[in-house]
Design a protein around this nucleic acid. Structure first.
Length: 254
DNA sequence: ATGGCGCGCGCAGCGCGA
């Protein structure tokens, strides 16, 4: 069982990359973020032709999440219960005895901004919800663009980024709160090279210089972490023409 | 490093992302 997450930064633009990548990596479950596609224009035919079912919660221009699965998923949810939000950032569904949650955590723009406080509130609601989900679903996988670099080793230049959005103490405390629920950061279950990142700015040749951040994550409940045999960032799609600025992350479970 | 890129929208140039 291979679980993956990828912020595609427009599903319409990235569809050729996505199809090639599905064929190459053969994931069983794929969480997509920033589809920027209304549901009426979701490319369901092409996804089905690639061998996947799809659930999606999109909106015009911004945000949007999708869940691609080999088998049909049940009990979909498209928001954090009790958290009123027009923005399409959440998609949860059940596959067999596993609950999968796809997230596009708010960016936060800059520390102290309205969007930053929206991000913190959103994360607080997420933590409370996932606490309940963990109690209900022992096999829980939470994948997505968290827009948080959890530790300094997840940042190419910690001094440059210190205190900025994506690395601030308040954001990192909320990421730790997710781990304190019992969720495991799948990539950190295994040794990784220094400078393992999932996002690189389009500007300044940041990818070539590996000036990146690790902000896309796969979190696994203890029962799933036990079954996790590998976790990798796949930087190959970031090398292509017109890439997403994010790379996919894949976890292999028994 | 503070912008340089790339996206959607819509047809110019802006808001947004991270």
């Amino acid at each position: 069982m291979r679980l993956a997450t990828w912020n595609v930064n427009s599903l319409k633009v990235r569809l050729p990359h996505l199809k090639d990548w599905l064929a190459a990596q053969q994931p069983d479950v794929v969480c997509l973020q920033e589809t920027k596609t209304e549901d009426a224009s979701f490319p369901l035919g092409e996804i089905e032709a690639a061998g996947y079912r799809a659930l999606y919660a999109g909106q015009k221009t911004y945000n949007g999440v999708a869940l691609l699965t080999r088998e049909a998923a049940a009990d979909p949810l498209t928001s954090i219960p009790g958290f009123e939000d027009e923005q399409k950032r959440v998609l949860a569904a059940t596959l067999g005895d596993m609950r999968v949650v796809c997230l596009y955590v708010p960016n936060g723009q800059s520390v102290g901004s309205d969007k930053y406080y929206y991000k913190l509130d959103w994360l607080d609601a997420l933590i409370a919800w996932l606490r309940a989900e963990l109690a209900r679903y022992p096999r829980l996988a939470v994948l997505g663009d968290f827009n948080i670099a959890p530790e300094d080793r997840d940042v190419h230049d910690p001094a440059l980024w210190a205190g900025q959005v994506l690395v601030s103490d308040e954001e990192r405390a909320r990421f730790r709160a997710l781990l304190d629920l019992g969720l495991k950061d799948a990539l950190r279950l295994f040794d990784q090279p220094e400078g393992s990142f999932t996002w690189w700015d389009y500007r300044m040749a940041a990818f070539r210089r590996n000036l990146g951040l690790r902000i896309d994550h796969i979190l696994l409940s203890p029962a799933l972490a036990e079954r996790c045999r590998a976790c990798q960032i796949d930087i190959a799609p970031r090398r292509l023409e017109r890439p997403s600025d994010h790379a996919p992350v894949i976890a292999q479970l028994d």
